[in-house]
Design a binder for these strands. Structure first.
Lengths: 343, 343
DNA sequence: GTAAAAACTTTGCGGGCGTAAAAATTTACG
DNA sequence: CGTAAATTTTTACGCCCGCAAAGTTTTTAC
């Protein structure tokens, strides 16, 4: 049926036989109206296609249904994946996700926050750049918008933090590597932007000392998010100069490890734990690519689906309670060891 | 100075000494007011921090400044990269990018279009899923919103298409492979979702025939976007069954090739063009990962920065002219050969 | 210096919806 | 069946800005 064009809520209210304020209430929360009313509205919704003007809604509501999601670098499939899962949870909760990437850039991160401010989001889920973040700008933002931080821990920021237990996972893989061969050296960026990297480094050092081994740090240069390149170029240099302190290398993350694998390949070093292998290489994160590396990468996973679910859950709690929490909750999820061929 | 809080454009107009309609005009397009007026507004903008309410603006403007960007699968760094470049161009042009991913799913693609409809975008840049797309839904959308399609060619859809010249690039790499060794077999998904894949297959076949060789298709199963897994599992099978018709394999894209590399590695086949190598493998796209594969992947690039720039340029043309073009322009950019160690 | 053009001001309307308060209706429950 | 509670209707206002028309001022051009 070529039914009448509905221009606004007034007209829709008319054809559905319900008053406009009640219809408005329905669209704000379908559960807030009587079942019989809901049925009549939904019936009308099926014959006439009408959707409230989102701009008019957002202009007048105290709170929009927008949830900002900010990740530091979207071209990294890890963040793309976690963002996707978060998006789904947000939609599930009846909100509208707005995905922004900081592209590894401080200015962009601040612009993202500015951009979010103009859309007055109900809340924000943010994985900050880390060291490169402008702490003052973030603090300022968190004051005005309920914000849950995830992935990168920056102390005290936001209403809560949800992330990965780097201490536990680093200990786990150090233990494994020491048990199964030569104690590892630690391969990392000299000045990583991500705070997780510092925690992994520190835990590596303390675990090695606990196990009675000398820790060795291999620190390569690089300050952008092209970790594979940084790992490869740094790796080429270290291998060329015969500066490998051990035949076992634990990398700060999988992307660096993939770069190091490429370097080893090009230098003719066979990687693995089998006979005839010159080098063992392990990573951290169980990155989507790690299982397709040559050889497949031994690593320790992040429980990103738990991180995503819990972050959204916490944010919803803050939003729906209507008040900011006094305490700053911090939640860390455990990783699991993935033993593959590389170490 | 703890200056007066500005609540709306009325108040801002007052403190800036300019009338509200003129201020409104300024925010719509700063160039549209006299230089002296612009200076006074911008001066006021520095002491008072005011930004127009974006919802009120969008509600009342004939056209919003929103530009939708839809990609089929954001966890693929190729799309993440091209989306980033497009975003920048869009911002540069004074518009507001809204990035959406279809996550490889038809339903999600339709939902993205629905979601875009509610925000009444000035235009949309869309890379469709391809075969999995709901053509009717896309056509319907394109009728109501100026849309430029990119990457995946679906005939006649949208106001224009911008993409990669698959014929030329496939010919290029076929030529190279034939010239430098055994003629290649073609490794692909049996029923790829992406139309580019079909073009590459057809061009492979015709090029081989032109060069006087028998074409061989190796078609593996899989219908999602986890190309590495599909390539690896398919590759393992083919290698196990000794079904490789040539020692040279041209893959339909780099991600499949990376999967095939992993399979070859695990089967103990040395890949490369040097002495002692059992297999040559080449890809297509010059994917961000391809240079870090073991060995680095020989491939042919897509000129994604040209594709991004041109897409935005065309869309701006349509938007700013205010009328939809009659002809359906189709633009294809050339790729370049990247000779690395894998073939 | 003058006329025309351009830019600005004033005034006023309209968009589509949230929300509040009082009145009317429906439902629940004994 | 009657009453209280829950829900809906009616009425009215407000949000913040785009836009248009008519009148005024400033700039440009000759």
């Amino acid at each position: 049926m070529a039914s009448r064009k509905i221009r606004n809520m007034e007209e829709f209210a008319e054809v559905s036989g319900i008053s406009r304020p009640t219809v408005s209430k329905y669209f704000n929360d379908p559960e807030s109206v009587r079942k019989s009313t809901r049925a009549r509205i939904e019936e009308a919704l099926e014959t006439y296609d009408y959707r409230p003007n989102i701009y008019a809604m957002n202009q007048n509501r105290r709170l929009t249904k927008n949830i900002g999601i900010v990740v530091p670098y979207l071209a990294d499939p890890f963040f793309a994946e976690i963002a996707r899962v978060i998006e789904n949870h947000v939609i599930e909760a009846g909100y509208r996700p707005i995905l922004l990437s900081s592209h590894g850039d401080t200015t962009q991160e601040i612009e993202n926050l500015d951009s979010l401010r103009t859309i007055r989001p109900a809340g924000v889920l943010m994985a900050p750049l880390g060291r490169a973040s402008d702490r003052t700008a973030l603090e300022d933002f968190c004051k005005s918008v309920p914000t849950i931080m995830f992935d990168s821990y920056i102390s005290g920021l936001g209403d809560a933090f949800v992330g990965h237990d780097n201490e536990l996972s680093t200990e786990l893989i150090c233990d494994y590597l020491c048990r199964s061969g030569e104690p590892p050296a630690f391969f990392e960026m000299r000045t990583p932007t991500n705070p997780n990297a510092y925690r992994r480094r520190n835990t590596y050092v303390s675990t090695m000392e606990k196990l009675g081994h000398d820790p060795h740090l291999i620190q390569v240069e690089g300050d952008d998010w092209e970790f594979e390149r940084i790992g490869m170029e740094g790796g080429m240099k270290v291998i060329s100069e015969h500066n490998l302190p051990s035949n076992t290398i634990l990398c700060s993350n999988d992307r660096l490890a993939i770069g190091l694998l490429a370097a080893a390949y090009q230098k003719g070093l066979r990687v693995g734990h089998g006979a005839g292998c010159a080098l063992r290489i392990a990573g951290h994160d169980n990155h989507p690519w790690s299982q397709f590396a040559c050889p497949p990468l031994t690593t320790v996973s992040q429980d990103y689906s738990a991180i995503a679910a819990r972050s959204v859950e916490l944010l919803m709690g803050v939003i729906e309670s209507g008040e900011r929490p006094e305490s700053h909750e911090e939640i860390f999820f455990e990783g699991k060891l993935f033993m593959r061929e590389s170490a």
